[in-house]
Write a protein that binds this DNA or RNA. Sequence first.
DNA 1: GAAAGTTAGGCGAACGTTCGCCTTAATAAA
DNA 2: TTTATTAAGGCGAACGTTCGCCTAACTTTC
Lengths: 354, 354
Amino acid sequence: MRIMPARRVTLKDVAATAGVSYQTVSKVINHQLQVSEETERRVWQAVETLNYRPNHTARALRSQRSFTLGYSWPPSPKDQTNPILDQFLQSIFEAAQERGYYLLCFPYNMDTKQHLETYGELIDTGRVDGFILSSVEYQDPRVLFLLERNFPLVAFGRSDPELFFPWIDVDGAAGIAMVMSHLLELGHVRIAALAWPQSSRVGNNRMEGYFNTLKAAGIDPKPCWIQRGEGRFSFGYEATRQLLDLPKADRPTALIALNDPMAIGAMQAAREHKVAIGTQLVIASFDDTPMVRYLDPPLTSVRQPIWEVGQRIIPMLLDYIETGRLPEPTSVLVTPQLIIRGSTGSQINKQEGG
Amino acid sequence: MRIMPARRVTLKDVAATAGVSYQTVSKVINHQLQVSEETERRVWQAVETLNYRPNHTARALRSQRSFTLGYSWPPSPKDQTNPILDQFLQSIFEAAQERGYYLLCFPYNMDTKQHLETYGELIDTGRVDGFILSSVEYQDPRVLFLLERNFPLVAFGRSDPELFFPWIDVDGAAGIAMVMSHLLELGHVRIAALAWPQSSRVGNNRMEGYFNTLKAAGIDPKPCWIQRGEGRFSFGYEATRQLLDLPKADRPTALIALNDPMAIGAMQAAREHKVAIGTQLVIASFDDTPMVRYLDPPLTSVRQPIWEVGQRIIPMLLDYIETGRLPEPTSVLVTPQLIIRGSTGSQINKQEGG
DNA sequence: GAAAGTTAGGCGAACGTTCGCCTTAATAAA
DNA sequence: TTTATTAAGGCGAACGTTCGCCTAACTTTC
């Protein structure tokens, strides 16, 4: 036998107490204002004393809306933690709650077909009104699926330019460009990059900042400076060893990594090569994982305004859902922030950096 | 105007196609088997061709169940990442989906009263059938609130012994005891601890392992070996500086931290004192944040079986919800795993450690 | 002072299920 | 045969809302 918490208070109870029909109570609660002030007062009074709360399920059934948003994200590899997950989730939960929505979270299934099946189920069973996507890639199957079904979504991250859908993204190119300018100002000319494969959309965006800045400075990057691999510690370590073994004339004096784990690997390699980090080799990265401020030396990194992304992505999705029209603007680019620390030598910001 | 995705397929559509009443279709779908095989076949056939899926909201309204579980967790401080969040979430999402449930996640509100208000709303509006709690403390207001409302919950973490409710927890005492035994085997006698304040339930559990092991070994820990503070890098750093300034006879040769950030702070302090980590000062900690395997030296740490906790906590809650009786067993203690790395000197596991 | 307009609020229906009861026909027992 | 038993499936109601329409009373207008 199931648990039956004390019987729920319904519209009819409130109506009985207030001495009106239950439909009138509904009107009051939904601010339909074909109700006299006197009646309204009485109804609210009854709502108060009975501690009435509209049944969400009934409301959802009748109005054909669930006031629920779906979200699923790819789990991080076992040797890394997702540095932005917690903050992003808290931010979207809060922004959603503010507008009367909650988030339904579901597992990320590595099998694409099964994963899309879950999206389909959530749509067809009416459990969600729209989706948040993240870690969007080129020709992302989730995007294609939802576009085809014409179901509301907003993505954290872009995809192919010809796919038209609402998104918000951190301007990775601008972030890396800030790092590059910083390095150029420090006098560095031979700047290496630890990047992702060219199939990575995020990686390519960030690398734009690398190429464009160098081009503007009239520097032609040697191909060997650009190392591509998966964004793990081990790749950063190996790639940096190779970079440090280059002949002196080619050997980079500065290095940017597209994420923190690669940078930490690079630091390890530098340490083993007896290369002083921050002077002989300057290192910077992207993401500003909380822990990197405690590395030795503290790591210069680009911080994404994650809270802001969360606060903005939710209204975009809700406007889309509630009006049925694409949000304006349909795409948003937010600028990250460069946090300068000891790993790029300059001691101008020995403090925490926020 | 709202988006109206192609009209949903309902029971009636299926019934029309199969040539039966819609209630009969319902019976087939719910395996009520007062249906001939022939009819059943036809119905499933129709379900297939129309791609029918039962409307979740209607089902929830009628059956007074939402098939949804609520979860909220305290956000981690800005200078730390929660090392287990992602894995725990993925695990509970998966376990829940397997039994036909999804998770409704909502923001953690620092204002306790408002936070409980959210729990109450989710209950009263019928949005969830039960709650998962984590980071449970002594006299936890969420536990007290839900117990009073007699609403199903299962906690990841214990509270006061006299509060009777279902929980699953990692045996922190056993975890620290494993570390301590390891350190004793290595010959250490003066072992310090970086702990949380005594108001911390998790901290006290873990410290049991410290005290019990020392007692069993006939060692009486000096009060100055036990440093208590908030579990941050900065506290670990400061406390370790003090420990290293103790007169030689008192100075610890080994140190356990109740979490990784404190241990990393300790490593920093040791480095600045020119004390060799892993030989002159041995350091171990708790949680095994993915990144600590890449520290220099790699950090010995206790790893919690988070995936398992997630896989077990969900069936506990669902059994509770579906039968209305407390799950059996009502409380579960799982044992963590010691991952030995360079920071405790022994090189027996120079590999990744999983 | 009658026609027209406005307003408060009641009523029936509908959203898409599940549930319990009832009917009918087929089968078994007497 | 007649009666009791069972199985298959139909039917009405209910879950708790929202929505649109209708009525009655009251107000305005010429």
